[in-house]
Design a protein around this nucleic acid. Structure first.
Lengths: 207, 207
DNA sequence: AATCAGTTTAACCATATAGTTAACTTTTGT
DNA sequence: ACAAAAGTTAACTATATGGTTAAACTGATT
Protein backbone atom coordinates (compact mmCIF):
# COMPACT_ATOMS: atom_id res chain seq x y z
CA UNK A 1 0.00 0.00 0.00
CA UNK A 2 2.41 2.63 -1.21
CA UNK A 3 1.45 6.18 -0.55
CA UNK A 4 -0.68 8.23 -2.92
CA UNK A 5 2.07 10.45 -4.28
CA UNK A 6 5.20 8.43 -3.88
CA UNK A 7 6.61 9.36 -7.29
CA UNK A 8 8.73 6.39 -8.14
CA UNK A 9 12.24 7.16 -9.23
CA UNK A 10 11.33 6.44 -12.84
CA UNK A 11 8.30 8.71 -12.79
CA UNK A 12 10.39 11.52 -11.34
CA UNK A 13 13.22 11.01 -13.80
CA UNK A 14 10.72 11.22 -16.62
CA UNK A 15 9.20 14.42 -15.31
CA UNK A 16 12.55 16.13 -14.87
CA UNK A 17 13.73 15.11 -18.31
CA UNK A 18 10.43 16.20 -19.83
CA UNK A 19 10.64 19.55 -18.06
CA UNK A 20 14.11 20.18 -19.44
CA UNK A 21 13.22 19.17 -22.98
CA UNK A 22 9.85 20.92 -23.11
CA UNK A 23 11.24 24.11 -21.65
CA UNK A 24 14.05 24.31 -24.14
CA UNK A 25 12.28 22.96 -27.25
CA UNK A 26 8.60 23.62 -26.67
CA UNK A 27 5.74 21.19 -27.08
CA UNK A 28 6.12 20.75 -30.82
CA UNK A 29 9.90 20.73 -30.81
CA UNK A 30 10.19 18.10 -28.10
CA UNK A 31 10.62 14.46 -29.03
CA UNK A 32 9.36 11.69 -26.76
CA UNK A 33 12.46 9.68 -27.59
CA UNK A 34 14.69 12.54 -26.51
CA UNK A 35 12.88 12.73 -23.19
CA UNK A 36 13.24 8.99 -22.74
CA UNK A 37 16.94 9.12 -23.59
CA UNK A 38 17.54 12.00 -21.20
CA UNK A 39 15.68 10.15 -18.45
CA UNK A 40 17.61 7.01 -19.38
CA UNK A 41 14.49 4.84 -19.55
CA UNK A 42 12.52 3.00 -22.19
CA UNK A 43 10.21 5.19 -24.24
CA UNK A 44 7.23 3.07 -23.29
CA UNK A 45 7.59 4.22 -19.72
CA UNK A 46 6.57 7.70 -20.78
CA UNK A 47 3.19 6.34 -21.76
CA UNK A 48 3.02 4.04 -18.78
CA UNK A 49 3.31 6.88 -16.27
CA UNK A 50 1.82 9.71 -18.32
CA UNK A 51 -0.69 8.66 -20.91
CA UNK A 52 0.42 10.86 -23.78
CA UNK A 53 2.79 13.59 -24.85
CA UNK A 54 0.03 16.12 -24.35
CA UNK A 55 -0.66 14.93 -20.80
CA UNK A 56 3.01 14.92 -19.94
CA UNK A 57 3.37 18.39 -21.35
CA UNK A 58 0.45 19.71 -19.37
CA UNK A 59 1.95 18.37 -16.15
CA UNK A 60 5.21 20.14 -16.95
CA UNK A 61 3.48 23.32 -18.04
CA UNK A 62 1.24 23.42 -15.01
CA UNK A 63 4.09 22.82 -12.60
CA UNK A 64 6.29 25.38 -14.35
CA UNK A 65 3.66 28.03 -13.79
CA UNK A 66 2.61 26.92 -10.36
CA UNK A 67 6.21 26.93 -9.28
CA UNK A 68 6.62 30.63 -10.03
CA UNK A 69 3.33 32.43 -10.02
CA UNK A 70 2.20 31.96 -6.42
CA UNK A 71 5.59 32.95 -5.08
CA UNK A 72 5.50 36.08 -7.18
CA UNK A 73 1.93 36.85 -6.28
CA UNK A 74 2.50 36.41 -2.58
CA UNK A 75 5.43 38.83 -2.76
CA UNK A 76 3.10 41.39 -4.29
CA UNK A 77 0.47 40.96 -1.64
CA UNK A 78 2.53 41.36 1.51
CA UNK A 79 1.62 44.34 3.61
CA UNK A 80 4.29 47.02 3.31
CA UNK A 81 4.90 50.47 1.84
CA UNK A 82 5.10 50.56 -1.94
CA UNK A 83 8.73 51.61 -2.18
CA UNK A 84 9.83 48.90 0.21
CA UNK A 85 7.76 46.39 -1.68
CA UNK A 86 9.28 47.39 -4.99
CA UNK A 87 12.79 46.91 -3.68
CA UNK A 88 11.95 43.58 -2.13
CA UNK A 89 10.10 42.42 -5.23
CA UNK A 90 13.03 43.29 -7.44
CA UNK A 91 15.43 41.28 -5.35
CA UNK A 92 13.21 38.27 -4.76
CA UNK A 93 11.86 38.10 -8.28
CA UNK A 94 15.26 38.27 -9.92
CA UNK A 95 16.45 35.61 -7.52
CA UNK A 96 13.51 33.43 -8.50
CA UNK A 97 13.93 33.95 -12.22
CA UNK A 98 17.66 33.35 -12.09
CA UNK A 99 16.85 29.91 -10.71
CA UNK A 100 14.33 29.31 -13.52
CA UNK A 101 15.57 31.40 -16.43
CA UNK A 102 13.81 29.38 -19.14
CA UNK A 103 10.32 29.51 -17.72
CA UNK A 104 9.23 32.97 -18.89
CA UNK A 105 9.94 32.36 -22.56
CA UNK A 106 8.55 28.86 -22.27
CA UNK A 107 5.26 30.05 -20.82
CA UNK A 108 4.95 32.96 -23.22
CA UNK A 109 5.68 30.85 -26.25
CA UNK A 110 3.18 28.17 -25.35
CA UNK A 111 0.62 30.78 -24.39
CA UNK A 112 1.06 32.25 -27.81
CA UNK A 113 0.44 28.98 -29.55
CA UNK A 114 -2.42 27.94 -27.31
CA UNK A 115 -3.89 30.82 -25.31
CA UNK A 116 -6.48 28.55 -23.80
CA UNK A 117 -3.98 26.47 -21.89
CA UNK A 118 -3.08 29.05 -19.29
CA UNK A 119 -6.72 29.65 -18.53
CA UNK A 120 -7.08 25.99 -17.78
CA UNK A 121 -4.75 26.33 -14.82
CA UNK A 122 -4.93 29.84 -13.59
CA UNK A 123 -6.80 32.34 -15.69
CA UNK A 124 -8.18 34.89 -13.33
CA UNK A 125 -6.27 33.36 -10.44
CA UNK A 126 -3.30 35.47 -11.42
CA UNK A 127 -5.41 38.50 -12.16
CA UNK A 128 -6.98 38.25 -8.72
CA UNK A 129 -3.59 38.08 -7.06
CA UNK A 130 -2.24 41.01 -9.04
CA UNK A 131 -5.28 43.13 -8.28
CA UNK A 132 -4.35 44.01 -4.66
CA UNK A 133 -1.00 45.24 -5.89
CA UNK A 134 -2.70 47.37 -8.54
CA UNK A 135 -4.97 48.72 -5.82
CA UNK A 136 -1.99 49.67 -3.72
CA UNK A 137 -0.45 51.53 -6.65
CA UNK A 138 -3.76 53.23 -7.33
CA UNK A 139 -3.97 54.40 -3.75
CA UNK A 140 -0.48 55.84 -3.80
CA UNK A 141 -1.14 57.41 -7.17
CA UNK A 142 -4.18 59.20 -5.81
CA UNK A 143 -2.05 60.52 -2.98
CA UNK A 144 0.29 61.86 -5.64
CA UNK A 145 3.10 59.57 -4.55
CA UNK A 146 3.61 57.77 -7.84
CA UNK A 147 4.22 58.79 -11.38
CA UNK A 148 0.91 59.65 -13.01
CA UNK A 149 0.24 56.46 -14.96
CA UNK A 150 -2.49 53.79 -14.79
CA UNK A 151 -1.51 51.04 -12.33
CA UNK A 152 -1.61 48.43 -15.11
CA UNK A 153 0.99 50.38 -17.06
CA UNK A 154 3.19 50.69 -14.01
CA UNK A 155 2.90 46.97 -13.39
CA UNK A 156 3.89 46.20 -16.95
CA UNK A 157 6.82 48.58 -16.67
CA UNK A 158 8.03 46.78 -13.57
CA UNK A 159 7.69 43.33 -15.12
CA UNK A 160 9.36 44.54 -18.31
CA UNK A 161 12.42 45.72 -16.43
CA UNK A 162 12.72 42.44 -14.56
CA UNK A 163 11.80 39.82 -17.13
CA UNK A 164 12.84 41.27 -20.47
CA UNK A 165 16.56 40.47 -20.19
CA UNK A 166 15.70 36.80 -19.74
CA UNK A 167 13.27 36.78 -22.63
CA UNK A 168 15.64 38.60 -24.92
CA UNK A 169 18.69 36.80 -23.65
CA UNK A 170 19.64 35.00 -26.87
CA UNK A 171 19.40 38.23 -28.85
CA UNK A 172 21.18 40.32 -26.22
CA UNK A 173 23.99 37.82 -26.02
CA UNK A 174 24.59 38.19 -29.73
CA UNK A 175 24.25 41.97 -29.82
CA UNK A 176 26.56 42.53 -26.86
CA UNK A 177 28.74 39.50 -27.61
CA UNK A 178 28.26 38.02 -24.16
CA UNK A 179 29.06 34.46 -23.15
CA UNK A 180 27.27 32.80 -20.25
CA UNK A 181 29.58 34.35 -17.72
CA UNK A 182 29.22 37.82 -19.17
CA UNK A 183 25.45 37.46 -19.18
CA UNK A 184 25.43 36.43 -15.53
CA UNK A 185 27.53 39.47 -14.77
CA UNK A 186 25.10 41.62 -16.73
CA UNK A 187 22.25 40.29 -14.60
CA UNK A 188 24.27 40.81 -11.43
CA UNK A 189 24.63 44.47 -12.32
CA UNK A 190 20.90 44.72 -12.85
CA UNK A 191 20.22 43.12 -9.51
CA UNK A 192 22.35 45.77 -7.90
CA UNK A 193 20.76 48.87 -9.39
CA UNK A 194 17.22 47.65 -10.03
CA UNK A 195 15.68 48.06 -6.54
CA UNK A 196 16.47 51.76 -6.38
CA UNK A 197 15.84 52.23 -10.07
CA UNK A 198 12.37 50.69 -9.91
CA UNK A 199 11.49 52.98 -7.05
CA UNK A 200 12.70 55.97 -9.02
CA UNK A 201 10.63 54.84 -12.01
CA UNK A 202 7.45 54.41 -10.03
CA UNK A 203 7.52 56.91 -7.16
CA UNK A 204 7.23 60.58 -7.83
CA UNK A 205 10.39 62.50 -7.08
CA UNK A 206 9.28 66.03 -7.80
CA UNK A 207 5.88 67.57 -8.12
CA UNK B 1 13.19 37.77 -70.66
CA UNK B 2 11.55 38.31 -67.31
CA UNK B 3 13.50 40.31 -64.79
CA UNK B 4 15.81 38.76 -62.23
CA UNK B 5 13.57 39.24 -59.21
CA UNK B 6 10.10 39.37 -60.63
CA UNK B 7 8.59 37.23 -57.88
CA UNK B 8 5.78 35.47 -59.64
CA UNK B 9 2.44 35.71 -57.97
CA UNK B 10 2.74 32.14 -56.76
CA UNK B 11 6.17 32.66 -55.28
CA UNK B 12 4.94 35.73 -53.45
CA UNK B 13 1.78 34.04 -52.21
CA UNK B 14 3.91 31.23 -50.84
CA UNK B 15 6.23 33.61 -49.06
CA UNK B 16 3.42 35.55 -47.46
CA UNK B 17 1.62 32.42 -46.35
CA UNK B 18 4.88 30.98 -45.02
CA UNK B 19 5.62 34.19 -43.15
CA UNK B 20 2.24 34.11 -41.45
CA UNK B 21 2.44 30.45 -40.52
CA UNK B 22 6.07 30.48 -39.40
CA UNK B 23 5.59 33.61 -37.35
CA UNK B 24 2.61 32.25 -35.52
CA UNK B 25 3.65 28.58 -35.18
CA UNK B 26 7.41 28.60 -35.39
CA UNK B 27 9.62 26.40 -37.53
CA UNK B 28 8.68 23.13 -35.84
CA UNK B 29 5.03 23.95 -35.43
CA UNK B 30 4.51 24.96 -39.03
CA UNK B 31 3.20 22.44 -41.54
CA UNK B 32 4.11 22.67 -45.22
CA UNK B 33 0.57 21.64 -46.10
CA UNK B 34 -0.86 24.47 -44.02
CA UNK B 35 1.35 26.95 -45.83
CA UNK B 36 0.25 25.53 -49.16
CA UNK B 37 -3.40 25.69 -48.18
CA UNK B 38 -3.09 29.26 -46.96
CA UNK B 39 -1.34 30.25 -50.19
CA UNK B 40 -3.99 28.29 -52.09
CA UNK B 41 -1.46 26.39 -54.18
CA UNK B 42 -0.26 22.81 -54.53
CA UNK B 43 2.20 21.70 -51.89
CA UNK B 44 4.75 20.80 -54.54
CA UNK B 45 5.09 24.45 -55.44
CA UNK B 46 6.68 25.07 -52.06
CA UNK B 47 9.55 22.83 -53.08
CA UNK B 48 9.58 24.15 -56.62
CA UNK B 49 10.22 27.73 -55.53
CA UNK B 50 12.01 27.09 -52.26
CA UNK B 51 13.88 23.85 -52.05
CA UNK B 52 12.95 22.78 -48.55
CA UNK B 53 11.10 23.80 -45.42
CA UNK B 54 14.39 24.87 -43.91
CA UNK B 55 15.24 27.09 -46.88
CA UNK B 56 11.77 28.61 -46.93
CA UNK B 57 12.00 29.25 -43.22
CA UNK B 58 15.36 30.94 -43.53
CA UNK B 59 14.01 33.29 -46.19
CA UNK B 60 11.14 34.22 -43.90
CA UNK B 61 13.37 34.54 -40.86
CA UNK B 62 15.94 36.62 -42.68
CA UNK B 63 13.36 38.96 -44.15
CA UNK B 64 11.57 39.29 -40.81
CA UNK B 65 14.75 40.51 -39.21
CA UNK B 66 15.95 42.58 -42.13
CA UNK B 67 12.60 44.27 -42.27
CA UNK B 68 12.91 45.61 -38.75
CA UNK B 69 16.50 45.82 -37.65
CA UNK B 70 17.92 48.33 -40.15
CA UNK B 71 15.02 50.69 -39.62
CA UNK B 72 15.54 50.51 -35.88
CA UNK B 73 19.26 50.87 -36.19
CA UNK B 74 19.05 53.86 -38.48
CA UNK B 75 16.75 55.57 -36.01
CA UNK B 76 19.36 55.08 -33.33
CA UNK B 77 22.15 56.50 -35.45
CA UNK B 78 20.64 59.77 -36.56
CA UNK B 79 22.45 62.85 -35.32
CA UNK B 80 20.39 64.54 -32.60
CA UNK B 81 20.37 65.20 -28.87
CA UNK B 82 19.73 62.14 -26.73
CA UNK B 83 16.42 63.27 -25.30
CA UNK B 84 15.05 64.13 -28.72
CA UNK B 85 16.26 60.81 -30.03
CA UNK B 86 14.61 58.89 -27.21
CA UNK B 87 11.26 60.52 -27.90
CA UNK B 88 11.54 59.93 -31.61
CA UNK B 89 12.71 56.35 -31.11
CA UNK B 90 9.79 55.59 -28.84
CA UNK B 91 7.28 56.85 -31.36
CA UNK B 92 8.83 55.31 -34.45
CA UNK B 93 9.68 52.00 -32.86
CA UNK B 94 6.22 51.47 -31.41
CA UNK B 95 4.77 52.37 -34.78
CA UNK B 96 7.03 49.80 -36.40
CA UNK B 97 6.29 47.07 -33.90
CA UNK B 98 2.56 47.69 -34.05
CA UNK B 99 2.76 46.89 -37.74
CA UNK B 100 4.72 43.71 -37.02
CA UNK B 101 3.63 42.61 -33.56
CA UNK B 102 4.57 38.95 -34.00
CA UNK B 103 8.14 39.44 -35.07
CA UNK B 104 9.80 39.98 -31.69
CA UNK B 105 8.54 36.76 -30.14
CA UNK B 106 9.16 34.91 -33.39
CA UNK B 107 12.78 36.00 -33.56
CA UNK B 108 13.44 35.42 -29.89
CA UNK B 109 11.88 31.97 -29.92
CA UNK B 110 13.82 30.82 -32.93
CA UNK B 111 16.99 32.37 -31.60
CA UNK B 112 16.49 30.38 -28.47
CA UNK B 113 16.15 27.13 -30.35
CA UNK B 114 18.97 27.85 -32.76
CA UNK B 115 21.26 30.65 -31.60
CA UNK B 116 23.46 30.18 -34.63
CA UNK B 117 20.82 31.27 -37.10
CA UNK B 118 20.83 34.95 -36.22
CA UNK B 119 24.58 35.07 -36.55
CA UNK B 120 24.23 33.76 -40.07
CA UNK B 121 22.41 36.90 -41.12
CA UNK B 122 23.47 39.69 -38.89
CA UNK B 123 25.56 38.80 -35.90
CA UNK B 124 27.76 41.74 -35.21
CA UNK B 125 25.95 43.80 -37.82
CA UNK B 126 23.39 44.71 -35.18
CA UNK B 127 26.01 45.17 -32.51
CA UNK B 128 27.89 47.57 -34.77
CA UNK B 129 24.77 49.60 -35.38
CA UNK B 130 23.88 49.76 -31.72
CA UNK B 131 27.38 50.80 -30.73
CA UNK B 132 27.11 54.44 -31.86
CA UNK B 133 23.99 54.78 -29.75
CA UNK B 134 25.78 53.29 -26.75
CA UNK B 135 28.61 55.74 -27.37
CA UNK B 136 26.19 58.63 -27.36
CA UNK B 137 24.76 57.48 -24.04
CA UNK B 138 28.26 57.04 -22.66
CA UNK B 139 29.14 60.57 -23.65
CA UNK B 140 26.07 62.04 -22.00
CA UNK B 141 26.63 59.90 -18.95
CA UNK B 142 30.14 61.26 -18.56
CA UNK B 143 28.72 64.76 -18.73
CA UNK B 144 26.41 63.75 -15.92
CA UNK B 145 23.34 64.10 -18.07
CA UNK B 146 22.05 60.56 -17.71
CA UNK B 147 21.23 58.27 -14.90
CA UNK B 148 24.41 56.61 -13.69
CA UNK B 149 24.13 53.22 -15.37
CA UNK B 150 26.22 51.40 -17.99
CA UNK B 151 24.97 52.26 -21.50
CA UNK B 152 24.15 48.61 -22.20
CA UNK B 153 21.82 48.53 -19.21
CA UNK B 154 20.13 51.72 -20.32
CA UNK B 155 19.67 50.29 -23.79
CA UNK B 156 18.11 47.14 -22.39
CA UNK B 157 15.82 49.23 -20.20
CA UNK B 158 14.64 51.16 -23.23
CA UNK B 159 14.03 48.05 -25.31
CA UNK B 160 12.29 46.37 -22.38
CA UNK B 161 9.80 49.19 -22.03
CA UNK B 162 9.02 49.16 -25.74
CA UNK B 163 9.04 45.47 -26.64
CA UNK B 164 7.92 43.65 -23.51
CA UNK B 165 4.20 44.31 -23.88
CA UNK B 166 4.28 42.62 -27.29
CA UNK B 167 6.28 39.67 -26.02
CA UNK B 168 4.10 39.22 -22.97
CA UNK B 169 0.90 40.04 -24.79
CA UNK B 170 -0.80 36.64 -24.44
CA UNK B 171 -0.10 36.58 -20.71
CA UNK B 172 -1.05 40.22 -20.17
CA UNK B 173 -4.29 39.74 -22.03
CA UNK B 174 -5.24 36.96 -19.65
CA UNK B 175 -4.09 38.74 -16.50
CA UNK B 176 -5.86 41.98 -17.34
CA UNK B 177 -8.72 40.30 -19.21
CA UNK B 178 -8.16 42.32 -22.35
CA UNK B 179 -9.59 41.53 -25.76
CA UNK B 180 -7.84 42.71 -28.92
CA UNK B 181 -9.44 46.11 -28.74
CA UNK B 182 -8.52 46.59 -25.10
CA UNK B 183 -4.96 45.58 -25.84
CA UNK B 184 -4.71 48.07 -28.70
CA UNK B 185 -5.98 50.72 -26.32
CA UNK B 186 -3.40 49.65 -23.75
CA UNK B 187 -0.67 50.12 -26.35
CA UNK B 188 -2.13 53.47 -27.40
CA UNK B 189 -1.78 54.67 -23.82
CA UNK B 190 1.81 53.52 -23.78
CA UNK B 191 2.54 55.35 -27.00
CA UNK B 192 1.25 58.51 -25.40
CA UNK B 193 3.28 58.50 -22.22
CA UNK B 194 6.37 56.57 -23.32
CA UNK B 195 8.35 59.33 -25.04
CA UNK B 196 8.44 61.53 -21.95
CA UNK B 197 8.70 58.56 -19.65
CA UNK B 198 11.74 57.14 -21.44
CA UNK B 199 13.44 60.52 -21.17
CA UNK B 200 12.69 60.65 -17.47
CA UNK B 201 14.08 57.13 -17.06
CA UNK B 202 17.31 57.86 -18.88
CA UNK B 203 18.14 61.52 -18.35
CA UNK B 204 19.16 62.81 -14.96
CA UNK B 205 16.60 65.14 -13.45
CA UNK B 206 18.35 66.11 -10.24
CA UNK B 207 21.95 65.90 -9.20
C1' DA C 1 7.85 -22.36 -4.28
C1' DA C 2 3.69 -20.24 -6.40
C1' DT C 3 1.19 -16.29 -7.37
C1' DC C 4 0.23 -11.84 -8.47
C1' DA C 5 0.57 -6.83 -9.20
C1' DG C 6 3.54 -3.54 -10.65
C1' DT C 7 7.23 -2.46 -13.73
C1' DT C 8 10.15 -2.73 -17.80
C1' DT C 9 11.45 -4.03 -22.45
C1' DA C 10 11.64 -4.77 -27.49
C1' DA C 11 9.05 -5.14 -31.34
C1' DC C 12 5.51 -3.40 -33.70
C1' DC C 13 1.70 -0.15 -35.65
C1' DA C 14 -0.59 3.91 -37.64
C1' DT C 15 -0.14 8.19 -39.10
C1' DA C 16 1.67 12.61 -40.25
C1' DT C 17 4.85 14.94 -42.82
C1' DA C 18 8.74 16.60 -45.73
C1' DG C 19 10.08 15.65 -49.97
C1' DT C 20 10.07 13.38 -54.96
C1' DT C 21 8.48 12.08 -59.41
C1' DA C 22 6.44 12.05 -63.64
C1' DA C 23 2.82 13.45 -66.26
C1' DC C 24 0.20 17.59 -67.58
C1' DT C 25 -0.72 22.38 -68.81
C1' DT C 26 0.51 27.01 -69.79
C1' DT C 27 3.57 30.45 -71.32
C1' DT C 28 7.16 32.15 -74.20
C1' DG C 29 10.47 32.53 -77.86
C1' DT C 30 11.26 31.76 -82.83
C1' DA D 1 2.52 26.95 -85.66
C1' DC D 2 5.90 24.67 -83.20
C1' DA D 3 9.09 23.63 -79.62
C1' DA D 4 11.19 24.52 -75.47
C1' DA D 5 10.83 26.25 -70.98
C1' DA D 6 8.35 27.30 -66.98
C1' DG D 7 4.70 26.29 -64.03
C1' DT D 8 1.38 23.12 -61.88
C1' DT D 9 -0.75 18.89 -60.33
C1' DA D 10 -1.75 14.32 -58.23
C1' DA D 11 0.21 10.32 -56.75
C1' DC D 12 3.73 8.46 -54.48
C1' DT D 13 7.91 7.52 -51.16
C1' DA D 14 10.68 7.47 -47.08
C1' DT D 15 10.97 8.46 -42.63
C1' DA D 16 10.09 10.23 -38.11
C1' DT D 17 7.19 10.00 -34.41
C1' DG D 18 3.57 9.20 -30.98
C1' DG D 19 1.57 5.41 -29.37
C1' DT D 20 0.38 0.13 -28.52
C1' DT D 21 1.09 -4.59 -27.28
C1' DA D 22 2.52 -8.67 -25.43
C1' DA D 23 6.00 -10.88 -23.32
C1' DA D 24 9.46 -10.80 -19.61
C1' DC D 25 11.18 -9.39 -15.30
C1' DT D 26 10.91 -8.09 -10.21
C1' DG D 27 9.70 -8.10 -5.70
C1' DA D 28 6.40 -8.69 -2.23
C1' DT D 29 2.76 -11.85 -0.18
C1' DT D 30 0.93 -16.25 0.71
Amino acid sequence: MSNEKESSSTELKIFEAARDVFQSKGLEGARMQEIADKADINKSMLHYYYRSKEKLFEKVYELSIIKLMPQVASLLNEEMPLDVKLRKFSMKYLELIKANPDIPLFVIHEMNKNPGRLKKFIAKEIGKRVQPFLDQIKEEREKGNTVNLPPEQIFVNIMAMLVFPFLGRPVLQVIFDMDEKAFSQFIAVREAFMPDYLVSMVMKKEQ
